[in-house]
């Protein structure tokens, strides 16, 4: 068991602006799982993923990461988890505008024990697998949306996380580039990394071992 979500709710805002994003979600994620999450816009997919990734705390319910209750873990320790054990691909891709493609991929190494120089080779490998070998030293400001997204994916994998959480990793991409990413994910999964990804594309369901459909803040159906 790598993560466990038990009857979790999440409420944003209060009064008029109150939104119940999650209304009681339970989910077990085991080591090596390859989970796909689908569902309409606003159904709470990003919220669920960020709760699993220790980015936000639930309003109610319990989350366990690695058998530890997340609410008992200190901020320092949570940062450690986010840097080392968890790889996160944000829905709205975010890169550091002052850095080049390669440097962006290397940033998480700052939060791990390794040396930047030692990780360069692996970073280049990841970028090449994602079809970005031609643009290693460009400042990221100049990149297209799809290129940025692939840089973010390489960044999420650089520290070899135990669990990869990807929020619509293929959102901005054409079919060929999307297939490339799913192929990379499959090889990462085959190497033992747990993956949870959100997608709107039914075609990618075939890669996952479990697929859940969310709706209205709940897991509505198990598609696979």
């Amino acid at each position: 068991m790598i993560a466990k979500v038990i009857n979790v709710t999440k409420v944003y805002g209060s009064g008029q602006a109150r939104t119940e994003a999650l209304k009681g979600v339970s989910l077990d994620i085991n080591e090596g799982d390859y989970i796909g999450i689908m569902g309409a816009s606003g159904s709470g997919k990003t919220t669920l993923l960020s709760i699993i990734g220790c980015l936000i705390k639930p309003s109610d319910g319990e989350v366990y990461f690695d058998k530890r209750r997340v609410r008992d873990i200190s901020d320092i320790e949570l940062s450690r988890l986010r840097g080392r054990e968890i790889g996160f691909v944000f829905q709205f891709t975010d890169l550091l505008g002052n850095l080049t493609v390669l440097e962006n991929v290397l940033v998480p190494v700052l939060f791990h024990d390794g040396q930047i120089a030692e990780k360069k080779k692996y970073a280049v490998q990841l970028l090449e697998k994602l079809g970005l070998g031609y643009t290693l030293n460009t400042r990221v400001r100049a990149l297209s949306g799809g290129e940025r997204q692939r840089v973010a994916i390489a960044r999420s994998l650089i520290n070899r996380p135990r669990i990869l959480l990807a929020d619509e990793p293929t959102g901005d991409l054409d079919d060929a580039a999307s297939e490339r990413i799913m192929a990379l994910f499959s090889s990462v999964s085959a190497a033992g990394t747990t993956i949870v990804f959100v997608t709107h594309n039914k075609a990618f369901v075939k890669y996952a071992s479990n697929v859940y459909e969310m709706g209205d803040g709940r897991i509505q159906r198990i598609l696979k």
Partner: peptide, 16 residues
């Protein structure tokens, strides 16, 4: 803010 939030999201501690 956004940049620092991102850094926190990928593992930066406050002290960093």
């Amino acid at each position: 803010y956004h940049e620092m939030g991102l850094l926190r999201g990928i593992g930066a501690r406050r002290i960093f």
